[in-house]
């Protein structure tokens, strides 16, 4: 910041310069703005945004939501600062057909560039570490549950999903899942690319022709799942959707039996 407030005698220490800069009226007002705007974004992230998420029916979905919510909170101060500075400059506008008077001629300020880079690098590292951790938890869960997982073979074709439970000998156009049991989706397509998206479970994986891709999750809430296709797959892409149910173990078993399957 500019050092117009200092008296000449001794060169000021960095601490003094910072304190002097903080005393400047524009800096203070900007700070106040920044705090208010930050609070606004925190409010958006914590309270407003989650209202738009559908029901959370698995840990993976919760992790995805948490990432969004906390990233909003983390980036709120940055957004606050940027908007506050921009807003503050708007207080003293100039109109008319001739240019305004010249501003202070300050070309660069190494400490600020340095601090800005450092802070954004720290934010970036936090985001990276956070994301990697959450991702690891997801894949560790998948490995841990590999043996007990219920296998569901998901086949995408233009424009229906079909579900096959190879261990239970059931094939269905409806996805029913027992609650609290890990599930492994083995997804493939018989024509073009689709993307298997059980919305409330928070996982998604593409269906490719002749390649099997995997998605793991554990539904932990009873209820209805919307299943959609998230990759444009031709004419009726929009209608390639169905519904699934997360049900109690007993209900699931009786459904399997009713479908002519055998309960493991």
């Amino acid at each position: 910041m500019s050092d117009q407030h200092e008296v000449v005698d001794l060169p000021p220490t960095p601490g003094e310069r910072l304190r002097n800069a903080m005393k400047a009226r524009d800096v203070r007002i900007t700070m106040i703005f920044g705090v208010v705007i930050t609070a606004f974004f925190v409010f958006i992230g914590l309270w407003f945004y989650p209202k738009f998420m559908p029901e959370i029916m698995s840990e993976s979905m919760k992790r995805g939501k948490d990432v969004i919510v906390y990233f909003t909170v983390i980036s709120a101060p940055i957004a606050g600062l940027v908007i506050a500075i921009a807003l503050y400059t708007l207080f003293d506008r100039h109109h008319g057909d001739t240019p305004p008077e010249e501003a202070a001629s300050f070309r660069t300020h190494t400490p600020i560039v340095f601090v800005w880079t450092l802070v954004s690098a720290i934010f970036c590292i936090v985001a990276i570490v956070w994301g990697l951790t959450e991702m690891n938890v997801n894949s560790e869960d998948a490995t841990a549950n590999a043996k007990t997982a219920l296998v569901v073979e998901v086949t995408g074709s233009q424009w229906v999903w079909t579900f096959n439970y190879p261990e239970l000998g059931v094939q269905s156009e409806q996805l029913n899942l027992p609650v609290d049991r890990p599930v492994e989706f083995r997804v493939h397509s018989v024509d073009v690319n689709h993307s298997f998206w059980p919305v409330q479970l928070g996982v998604k994986v593409d269906a490719n022709d002749r390649v099997t891709t995997l998605a793991h999750t554990t539904p932990n809430v009873l209820g209805t799942i919307d299943i959609k296709c998230a990759e444009l797959c031709g004419l009726y892409h929009a209608y390639m959707e169905t519904q699934g149910k997360v049900m109690k173990e007993a209900d699931f078993n009786s459904w399997v039996t009713a479908q002519g399957g055998h309960v493991a």
Binding site: S2, D26, I78, V82, I85, A86, T89, L90, D92, R93, H94, H95, P99, P100, E101, A103, A104, F106, T108, H109, I112, V113, W116, T117, S120, A121, F123, C124, A127, I128, G131, L132, M135
Partner: peptide, 28 residues
């Protein structure tokens, strides 16, 4: 994911440049 999120650092620098330019100016 690491490389992608690293792009936020140079992008942030562009914000710094714009903000530093308009700061204490009188916008026309």
């Amino acid at each position: 994911m690491v490389t992608t999120e690293m792009i936020s650092i140079p992008t942030g620098l562009l914000f710094l440049v714009l903000l530093g330019t308009i700061w204490r100016g009188r916008p026309w």
